[in-house]
Design a protein around this nucleic acid. Sequence first.
RNA 1: GCCACCGUAGCUUAGCUGGUAGAGCGGCUGAUUUGUAAUCAGCAGGUCGGGAGUUCAAAUCUCUCCGGUGGCUCCA
Length: 613
Amino acid sequence: MKLLFIHADYMEYEAREPTKFAESILDEVKKGRMEEVLVAFTAIEKQDEKDALGSAEAAANEIADVARKVQTNNIMLYAYAHLSSSLAKPDKALEIFREIEIKLKEHEFNVHRSPFGWYKSFNIACKGHPLSELSRSIEVEEKAVTREEVVEKIEREYYVLTPEGEEYKFDPDEVEKLEVLDKYPTLQKFILAEEVKGQPKGEPPSIKAMRRLELIDYEEATDSGHFKFFPKGALIFHLLREWATYVATEKIGAIQIETPIMYDWSLPDIRGQTASFHERHYTIETEDGREFVLRFAGDFGLFRIMKNATMSYKQLPVRIYEFSKSFRYEQRGELSGLKRLRGFHMPDIHCFAKDLEQGWDEFQWIHRNYSDHADGTGVEWALGFRIVKEFYEKNKDKIIEMVKYSKRPALIETLSEAKHYWVVKNELQAIDSVGGNCQLGTVQLDVEDAERYGITYYDEKGEAKGCIINHSSIGSIERWIYAILEEALKKEKPELPLWLAPTQIRFVPVSQEFVEDCAELAESLNARVDVDDRDDSVGRKIRDAEREWVNMIIVYGQKEKDGDTLPVRLRSGEVKDLPLDEIQLIVEKELRNRPYKGLPLPMLLSKRIVFRG
RNA sequence: GCCACCGUAGCUUAGCUGGUAGAGCGGCUGAUUUGUAAUCAGCAGGUCGGGAGUUCAAAUCUCUCCGGUGGCUCCA
């Protein structure tokens, strides 16, 4: 907002002609005159719209301040557009004018506001003392927009889009009327969990299981929403991370970077990130008073790198991968097991494309890979798209292609306007064992000019242009663990995929004299094989192994020492006699194209410490 | 953040309308050397989530803080 103050002996004006946005006024206020007056010529600017009340308040305070200094009680608030080249919308400007007027009257000033939107003539007699002519510029500090505020006004519509391209519009309050869903139970569960309020759900059993299995536990010595990982949990975490990295770098073709987790909060571009992401965040203050923000997304370090990168249109698309810990200061009540954390690990891929067409190609390319990855984990997952309505109408064919590729129907939510930086995002949603859902992977197409982040490439004419960016994540590792545990717990006898199981094969010697043979056999196998050498009964060892979800249990005694095969007890309870090399083949087959890591704990169970009762 | 519920040994838990705690598992010691979901015996381990209040007396009642779960809001 721009203000020009004149302290005058008198000021008089007459409204001559209305402009097209003139406020309607009575004839008696077409003329105005005040004596011993502080005239505030005022132009409301575009940026004042963001916080109308805040800027009105700031302006009123400023005007009151000057009025007191020149010792007058009379104020004329005079709309004077010519002070600025970046004016606010007329209706918004008028609203702010009225607000300033009200605020000044609250300060007990005698206020006269000139009519808005009229061509006016005026006569003024400036006093000419040092304080009689002043100009001020008011900028209200931009208030961070909360997530709730942005989301409020948007109008939404919901559809089910089948792989055949059929579209069924529905009202989320009447999902039960939507008969197509009978054909698609997974999508039905997702829609019920996500869009229908008040669905009663129990506690997901993975929360207790992850603790009982000594995978992951709460840590009370830190903030809520941060977990500690025991060796077995750390193994699963490590394997999932390796696999995500493999998909990103080998399958998708992204190049990997590594950047810091905290950033200088005083830098405008770092602060700007919160404006477009409006996440809640952690800040850290150092002893010398500097403030840092913990990264809440992968973009911080990446965008800094990309700002300095020189890119030609010939090199695009460029895909960058980063695996890092992110921090979001979620509300207390939003935290939930491994589903929702304040500190979590995300594999992130950002694609930089030269135009919308290439941006779409990248969106679809990532979608296909994430879809394959999700299928590879064996979890039950549903597909969703959130998309700006206009954008959906224009690009429906592309959405249908992706729905077809994933061989499942999708929930489509159309939005009247963008609520974040993206115009379309897909969602890969895991369904847990109690009818809840949890978003894993997502790709988000950002069509706004990337120049706002300072990320540009050179086009055919050698001119710098902003990129189209796809922000994407395969889903946080913690959530993947959640989904995989929940999937396991849907069965009566839960089982982890062999490639993730901390113990794939356990030897149970019938007595101490066979421990050494078992250890030799265990070492000869290329898998995570351990030996229960504890001084306990066979029944007891079997029970413990079953409770630990060990995939294959082999009891070993004199019979096995003399024979050619080993009795492999599977999770089903079935015992199969198999030769050693065949067991190795089973493991190899299951582990193909998956990362591998050795036992996370000593091979002999007697050497293992107990982490929790 | 709001609403509801929960918090007793390392773990799982008993403890009715107030009288300062019982057990199982795990751990330790000893016996047992075991054939497909718990071998037996003994020992140690708790200021009942923290703090405050009511009371002669609080794990039990009240307040408050912390932690957890579910719902709302929001989200990877």
